[in-house]
Amino acid sequence: MLDNTIETTEIKSSGELLKTVEGLKSDGYRYSTMICLKANEGHDLIYIFEKDNKLKNLRYFVKPGEKPKSVSGIYLCALLIENEYQDLFGLTFEGLAIDYKGHLYLTPNSPKAPLA
């Protein structure tokens, strides 16, 4: 369980995710980063936003084989971290503003998805 001073919202679907992120942007939240964790054969994504020096998290479970939607169309700065998780966890984000296709850090000869 994360620090209970951080407000965390569970997100159930990718549609809800994009809608919630759009809402946060219009409420004046700054995109901070995203955490990716292995969880129950799939992955947990924790989106971290900041406003007035307080954090707000969204938690979204990515089912095995699911391609999560990119939020880089809403927050352009999300493109680097989403590309990082394509490299390190083997995820595929749909709708990335710039897609390095798993080669942001890694070369074709590197180990595949080393954190997966």
Binding site: S32, L80, I81
Partner: peptide
Amino acid sequence: ERLKIRTPTFANIPSLLL
């Protein structure tokens, strides 16, 4: 089990696109 680090330059590089 997991350590994740988001550094400031990681946050600032996308601003170069703008």
